[in-house]
Design a binder for these strands. Structure first.
Length: 806
DNA sequence: TAATCGATCTTTTTT
DNA sequence: AGATCGATTA
């Protein structure tokens, strides 16, 4: 078949660019197709080309194509690239799994007792709801249960499922989960898991709905299939009828979301689940030079459970990856900064030579990415980069929306669209204090539940209860209700009974498409979650007073936001409540209002705004001036977030045992960490740097670190090693059987001559040891010449023994 | 009733 | 270091 395809006359240029395997994947029809696409093998190109090909060569209606991704970024990129080939691609439905689920439920949720005006609860809301159910439990327990419930939904397990104990074996789990579901149903909202689980349930029970969807989507494509969880697999199964063409793309070596319920099993067993599956492998890597690919592969090759594939480096040979041993995390940041500075502004004399090596291409900040395992690690790099004026952006899910004041404002908005939202109501009804305490709030909630008339409407219940309350509570509650009403007034009257009357008949079907397609209010609110400290100027003062008197209401929905946060007193509350950060909080609220201005001042617009916030919190901020023309930035990013991205030069940091991988990782979890390493390393096109520090501040203390297990799994001859390797690294064979072996420096015993590190004093040596009632006292002479005594066994000691490796 | 202090505990990844 | 919890205080 491949030969045949190759011989076929001339293809349009957009197809000419493909290699034979890619072309085969694009042309494939009929059976289900599994594309095993290694890192950098051009899978996005295949999917987007395939969409375009189906539309223009096969006459497929773009509206009958559904393409699902896992991240909003991937969805966006795919849409852009497909549209570039053929603008009709704009009419394909290209969404994340969760946004597709939300879209589905807005139209068909009534079959699950869901009103179209639902909002989506995030993890924090989940915890709030659970704490109402588990009154006596600690926050930790509640969080644990919340995780279990989320996981249960990932695995498509309901409270009555016999397999539930596989998720959480505790007896009460089933009961709590059931009550949680009940309560959530009463409120009329959904959590993340529901966005997948509920559509499956509806498709299974409503044959007519399932029929309509199968009718509509004749082609379904799934990107990053290795990240699909069981519930998502079930959703695909329900969407696929006998006529549906299903094509999934994935790479088992890049499965890094197991902790979130992703099942590699899905991809491994795909051919068994979908009869007659054809498999196409894309193994030509166009991104990285061979030495980088070798290093990445040699780590992931240690894994047991994988399909196994061999990537071919189409770009050929090049520079070996650099393995840098640094003394501590501050030096690590300095190392990165210098590396970047030197490449962007090469020291004179060496510049031309450097230029030859990397080709004539000029190096820019944007060529660089600094990768780390946990978000917290970004801080050190930010500090160092700020100091050196290295422009950077931080990519990650933004905590902006998790801030107290923002959550408060969102709760007000949520309560406006869904007056049954108990969580939102409880959050803001007594904020600021209005004399409506938890007891009164509880009464209102109960009353709303009892009374059949109000159908759980808390506003109505509150209104009704007013006469029975104490004078203080009454006036407070009245003020709250009035403030909510004032917010409602800013919204255009519900014109044509928006979308909630479509009980049943509505489908993913015909005419409502216009609003799903390209327009979408883009432009992100580029707000820094952290603000650079040196931002206070004189103009600030003036703005402050203006804010004190009233935030400026822009157009659209922002009027609603502003009205609510003013009239409820939430703005004032935060201003007065937090002496230090009050003003910051106000400007955060203003920022939220600005973001809202992009949406129409209608109930539908408000829903859209809320959904957008829940479903896409990815945001990046660059703390330097946010002048739009400053686009040449270094990228700071977690390993997880890099999937799908590529950079010319990548620095992977913190490759130490205990950080990456964490010490408690073993078995399947350790394999996932290896895959994470693989993902990170294969982002690099030209240059890869691996950093490992001897000391790291961790849990508030400076800890001695050992190189990551993964560094032992790479052949040393394939690396260029700089810095001082710890004892043992050079001599130890690269072997796989090193796992679990602990190599710590014992702190309990002290000898004269031991090298130590003190968090304030720096490095030093033990010069004397005495016994005391409280254990050994060590006398240390620091390299600065200073001498101090320490209790050698104190657990929270600020002094740390280190390997004398230099 | 709420704020505050100190002791104690837990440290990921994200739609 | 930061979050969280309990007890104590105003």
């Amino acid at each position: 078949m491949e030969n045949l395809l190759n011989r076929t006359a001339t293809h349009p240029p957009y197809l000419e660019a493909l290699n034979p395997e890619q072309r085969e994947a694009v042309f494939h029809t009929g059976n289900p197709l599994l594309i095993l696409a290694g890192a950098g093998s051009g899978k996005t190109r295949v999917i987007t080309t395939k969409i375009a090909y189906l539309i223009r060569e096969k006459g497929v209606d773009p509206r009958s194509i559904l393409a699902v991704t896992f991240t909003n970024r991937a969805a966006r990129e795919m849409a852009d690239r497909a549209r570039l080939i053929d603008d009709r691609a704009a009419y394909t439905m290209l969404r994340t799994f969760h946004s597709f689920g939300a879209w589905f439920l807005r139209r068909n949720g009534s079959f699950a007792g869901l009103d179209s005006g639902f909002t989506i609860y995030d993890d924090e809301d989940m915890v709030s709801l659970l704490s109402l159910i588990m009154e006596k439990a600690s926050k930790g327990e509640i969080k644990h249960i919340a995780r279990s419930i989320a996981r249960a939904k990932d695995y498509f397990l309901s409270p009555d499922d016999p397999h539930l104990s596989l998720i959480d074996y505790r007896k009460e789990f089933r009961r709590v989960y059931a009550r949680y579901e009940e309560r959530l149903a009463q409120i009329g909202n959904v959590d993340f898991g529901d966005l997948i689980k509920k559509p499956v349930e509806i498709l299974r029970t409503q044959r007519e709905v399932a029929g309509r969807f199968r009718d509509r989507f004749r082609v379904i494509m799934v990107d990053e299939y290795q990240d699909a969880n069981i519930a998502q697999f079930e959703l695909l199964k329900e969407l696929c009828g006998p006529e549906t063409y299903l094509c999934v793309v994935g790479d088992d070596d890049q499965s890094i979301y197991r902790f979130r319920g992703a099942e590699v099993r899905n991809i491994l067993e795909f051919p068994d689940r979908f009869a007659g599956t054809d498999i196409i492998r894309l193994e030509r890597n166009y991104r990285s030079i061979a030495p980088i690919l070798n290093a990445a592969s040699s780590v992931v090759n240690r894994n047991q459970g994988r399909l196994g594939k061999t990537l071919i480096a189409e770009r050929g040979n090049g520079k070996k990856p650099v393995l840098a041993f640094l003394p501590n995390q501050d030096e690590e940041a300095v190392f990165c900064a210098k590396l970047i500075e030197n490449s962007v502004h090469p020291p004179k004399g060496r510049g031309s030579e450097e230029g030859k090596k990397t080709g004539s291409r000029k190096t820019s900040y944007a060529d660089w990415a600094v990768l780390y395992r946990t978000n917290a690690q970004s801080l050190g790099f930010e500090t160092e980069f700020l100091r050196r004026h290295i422009p950077y952006r931080v990519v990650g899910s933004l905590k902006f929306y998790e801030r107290e004041e923002i959550k408060d404002a969102l709760a007000l908005l949520s309560f406006l669209v869904n007056p049954k939202d108990e969580i939102a109501f409880r959050r803001v009804v007594n904020k600021p204090a209005r004399g409506v305490g938890a007891a009164t709030a509880g009464r209102i909630v109960e009353n709303a539940a009892m009374d059949s008339q109000s159908m759980g409407n808390l506003s109505a219940a509150a209104q009704r209860l007013l006469p029975e309350l104490s004078a203080k509570a009454r006036s407070g509650l009245e003020a709250f209700l009035k403030a909510m009403e004032s917010g409602r007034e800013t919204l255009a009257p519900r014109s044509s009974k928006t979308s909630d009357g479509e009980s049943g008949t509505e489908t993913g079907g015909r005419a409502e498409e216009e609003k799903d397609t390209p327009k979408k209010p883009r432009r992100k609110s580029k707000k820094a979650a952290k603000t650079s400290p040196d931002q206070r100027d004189e103009g600030e003062k003036e703005r402050e007073t203006r804010k004190r008197e009233g935030l400026n209401a822009g157009e659209g929905l922002s009027a609603c936001v502003v009205r609510l946060i003013q009239n409820t007193g939430i703005a004032e509350y935060h201003l007065l409540h937090d002496e230090i950060a009050g003003n910051q909080r106000i400007s955060n609220l203003q920022e939220l209002a600005n973001a809202a201005s992009l949406y129409p001042a209608t109930e539908a617009g408000l829903l859209e705004f809320l959904e957008h916030i829940e479903l896409d919190r990815s945001l990046e901020y660059n703390p330097g001036g946010n002048s739009a023309d400053l686009q040449d930035l270094v990228t700071l990013i977690t390993l997880h977030n890099t999937k799908g991205l590529e950079f010319r030069r990548v620095i992977m940091t913190g490759i130490e045992q205990g950080v990456f991988p964490r010490d408690d990782k073993k078995g399947e979890e350790l394999e996932e960490e290896r895959r994470l390493f693989y993902v990170g390393a294969t982002r690099a096109m030209d240059e890869l740097y691996l950093c490992s520090s001897a000391l790291r501040r961790l849990y508030g203390h400076t800890m001695p670190m050992q190189p990551s297990l993964f560094l032992y799994e790479i052949d040393k001859t394939g690396l260029r090693i700089i810095g001082t390797p710890p004892r043992g690294y050079i001599t130890r064979e690269s072997q796989s059987s090193r796992g679990g072996q602990k190599t710590e420096v014992p702190t309990g015993t002290w000898e004269i001559g031991n090298r130590i590190f003190h968090e304030d004093q720096g490095y030093g040596s033990v010069i004397e040891i005495r016994e005391s009632a409280e254990g050994p006292v060590v006398q240390v002479r620091f390299d600065t010449g200073k001498e101090l005594h320490f209790l050698g066994l104190r657990r929270n000691s600020r002094i740390t023994k280190i390997n004398a490796c230099d």
